[in-house]
Design a protein around this nucleic acid. Sequence first.
RNA 1: GGCGCUUUCAUCUAACGGUUAGGAUACAAGAUUCUCAAUCUUGGCAUACGGGUUCGAUUCCCGUAGGCGCUACCA
Length: 540
Amino acid sequence: MSTKSRHNTSIIFVMLPILSTFVLYFENMSDNIALERRVRVRFAPSPTGPLHIGGVRTALYNYLFARQHGGDFIFRIEDTDTNRFVPGAEEYILESFRWLGITFDEGVSFGGEHGPYRQSERRAIYRQNVETLLKLGKAYIAFDTPDELEAKRALIPNFQYDASTRMQMRNSLTLPAAEVESLVDNGVQYVVRMLVEPDREVVVDDMIRGEVKVNSSILDDKVLFKSVDMLPTYHLANIVDDHLMEVSHVIRGEEWLPSAPLHVLLYEAFGWLDTMPRFAHLPLLLKPEGSGKLSKRDGDRLGFPVFPLEWHDPVTGDVSSGYREKDYLPEAVLNFLALLGWNPGEDREILSLDEMTRLFNLEKCSKAGARFNYQKLVWFNHEYILAKPDSEVAELFRPVLEEKGVCVPFERIVKAVSLVKNRVNFIHELWDNSHYLFQAPQEYDDKSLKKWWKEDSPAIISELCDFIEKQEVFEGDILEQRVMEWIAGKEYAVGKVMNAFRVTLVGAAMGPQIFAITDFLGKEETLRRARHAVSVLSNG
RNA sequence: GGCGCUUUCAUCUAACGGUUAGGAUACAAGAUUCUCAAUCUUGGCAUACGGGUUCGAUUCCCGUAGGCGCUACCA
């Protein structure tokens, strides 16, 4: 190497750390921008029924984001629609997260400094804020009845309550102040509407989609508050709560994207733009087949649950299946869900909650809806059963055995699990694959008999039993060696002998290695079963 | 209808503007064993279409088509 080139190389080596320092600096800087505020996110379902699996994913992403940034995760109940309230839904949602292992830091049932966390308990706060908006001239009172609005819609195609129509309606902009006051005082029903200024460009800065721009003229004067129950609608409650609860990031489903500009306008109207949360609108979960987003009905129609837990509808009495009851492991459900719309950018797919927390990145979320293909969830479940220690799987299997009336020492269950767990996708399938380890066959599978139980089988198995009985060592490997030698000596076909033997022990041509089975059963039980089969099957 | 979002194998997805377009599930074949599985190996399968920008486009821009969402005194 010449002096000159060595010199150049050393420059590169000197430059390299400097360059990487710059890269690090900039990376940290962008991190710091994101972290200027304490990260606080929320999951805010409305208690109108069971928690939808798409809601679980939204909650999961919020959870991962909060944990990754050492922030807070808030559980808020949005129960401003008194008509759709379903008793038991709130407890169901909480129980679902307990099962899944998703934890919250504050909120309904968790406590915290920003409560109350149930919107129905925050009426005074909303009234006060509506008052503010009214005073600021950012909202107005409207008296149009639902019937009147209906009539307008029927009369005018594409009717929208907005700048182009509001002056033809009955509201505080068109009525004299005295009349408005007297109407309100006399208990006439009204709503408070947002006053949307037309023809402004509203920008929603979305962490997944970038800048989404819309013209305010396409927005309507949304109802923010209704006098019927003196409660706000979602839009108002949401903005007020997120602001008061110091929420830093709003991570929610894409169905909210169209109303996000209105939310930006609300933050602006209140003068809260400087602390407005960052938005991230997640792609939706779509039906496995056909068109549309995954709905509550799809589950039981297509053979998989759409709810984490089984749900008993208190009104209709209908029962919808749940992942817990269908024998899915919560880890598998979360892993599957996490990868529907996000991936860490590497080939690995089996990820623990901790690993997901480390790798999660909103900017790596996909933008298009993801079809909910539960086939892959079955595979995840299989993988998680395989990865679990035998003793843990045995613990889950024990209740199934008890239900079948099988009572054996725990070590026996662990051993049985070790023999058959690689062939199941679900815990309950362990029984179909291991019942013969706990109970002698009551009957023999016809197909297996036809294929493997020949005329000379009884004689051969009797011979084999006599040989086995003489063996002092019964341990699997050794016995296998001896029996193979014996078969070879007799010049029998290995498959013929072994499969006939298998049928006597198992009752069918299935199961793990035969000497693993004999090992499990023990000498006495093995011989008992084989001889019993010979006596039962030789006549038939 | 209006507005917005979106588009890579059947499905979930990867790919600084330069790759034989990668992985996984599912499917198929083979290997293996005493059976059934599991496992391993192999295979087929994709950049919606049309324009531009560029030496070069899956990647950037525009249009078309498809998909999805919203369009309530629901959330």
